[in-house]
């Protein structure tokens, strides 16, 4: 299979499964509710999955653990987390994180 064909297949599989999740209880029409244990666990999905995606992107550079100050993504990321906590805004978090990264890259390697 071609690369594009492979990606399209993946996208369609995810799309179909997502649709099934979305349609599940709407199509049943409110005659059933998800189990309590499932509802309780679900609350923790976003606060678990999102940090799991974020943290390796900050602490790893080119497949190696990089906890030094020379890791500009770690510094920019930590600052962005602080901005996210105070502003609660996607736009401010993006601006602070990208701005800091660009500034540090400019300071380290020059224009």
């Amino acid at each position: 299979m071609s690369e594009t064909g492979y990606l399209l297949t993946l996208i369609c599989v995810i799309g179909a499964l997502t649709y099934v999740i979305r349609a599940s209880f709407i199509l049943i029409g409110g005659r059933m509710k998800p189990a309590m244990a499932f509802q309780r666990a679900l609350r923790f999905v976003p606060v678990s999955v999102l940090p799991a995606l974020v943290m390796p992107a900050l602490f790893y550079r080119n497949g190696e653990l990089a906890m030094a100050l020379s890791n500009e993504r770690l510094l920019a990321g930590l600052l962005a987390i602080a901005v996210a906590v105070f502003s609660r805004s996607v736009l401010w978090t993006l601006s602070a994180g990208m701005g800091t990264l660009w500034l540090l890259q400019y300071m380290i390697s020059g224009p």
């Binding site: 976003p46 606060v47 940090p51 799991a52 990321g77 805004s89």
Partner: peptide, 26 residues
């Protein structure tokens, strides 16, 4: 991409259990 995820995750951390979940997962 990770910056966007941060902005989405932070408002969802509302109490001690959700903070514990985020720290453990990270």
């Amino acid at each position: 991409v990770p910056l966007t995820f941060m902005a989405l995750a932070v408002p969802a951390i509302r109490d001690a259990p959700s903070a514990a979940a985020a720290l453990a997962a990270g």
